[in-house]
Amino acid sequence: MKGLFKSKPRTPADIVRQTRDLFLYADRSNSLPDLRESKREEKMAELSKNIRDMKSILYGNSEAEPVAEACAQLTQEFFREDTLRLLITCLPKLNLETRKDATQLVANLQRQQVNSRLIASDYLEANLDLMDVLMEGFENTDLALHYGAMFRECIRHQIVAKYVLESEHVKKFFDYIQLPNFDIAADAAATFKELLTRHKSTVAEFLTKNEDWFFADYNSKLLESSNYITRRQAIKLLGDILLDRSNSAVMTRYVSSRDNLRILMNLLRESSKSIQIEAFHVFKLFAANQNKPSDIVNILVANKSKLLRLLADLKPDKEDERFEADKSQVLKEIAALEPRDLA
């Protein structure tokens, strides 16, 4: 009987089921002290091999392209039960190579469609607490890059991004993108950007609801950070957010605040040209606003000559027609401004 089964090749679903059993084993193994070490190692090696096998089913390998039917079977079985949760909780017990394979496996699964449905999204919707686990990964140097990559893949699903934006997690990103480890901080920054730009309607809704604290924190923690790279990334992302059509209401309110204008004018004076240029792309919105509040007008008028001089000298390294056009428009706006009585 056994021989019969052995000769049959494993189906993708078989591999998923076996992997699940091995995960359960790995999860338990620490609490079984009488277990032989060699036995444990054998099982872990088997687990590593299974994860790699699943990866090559989904991505293909040097000999074969991936087969749609096999991918669908694997994905279906994977999400039929709680395999993703097991994978995430067992990740710390896997070796480096297997962690990388597991991360790529999870990334691919987010994009697999079964009967033209992204079933990963359905699974995550019912298991949103997994995002909390992944989020904690940013604080563990060994796991951060793996959990971080999975996290970014998961927020491809709108429902997941919405959950994260509405949770307390979003606040933590202000700190994570300033972690001393560059690779982790940069990974967090990439995720933060994805979170605030990918799903337009969700982002607009989030910003409208959380405008006050969000921009206050954004200004004080990011735009006024002592860290060059934080300021640089933050000003770029701010431009991307405000210039997006779906955020126009938020933008209009943003450019009516004198606090915001003060910060932007400081960024315009930075010694880094890259920051100056990015700051200009936000500053121009203040100048172009046709309904400028009086206090904004008065600040611009008070600094008129300085601004005109500064802007005239500001040039990107590469020739940029659009930049020049924007600049002359802004120069014209500011030059024409007259002081106003405060209403």
Binding site: L96, E97, K100, L145, F182, D183, A186, D187, A189, A190, K193, Y228, I229, R232, Q233, K236, S272, K273, S274, E278
Partner: peptide
């Protein structure tokens, strides 16, 4: 960094590659 593009994507990938390869 002032000569890099603002998303630092390729730098991020490079350092990540360098810290995950063993």
């Amino acid at each position: 960094l002032d000569r890099s593009r603002a998303d630092f994507d390729s730098l991020r990938r490079e350092t990540k590659t360098m810290s995950l390869l063993s």
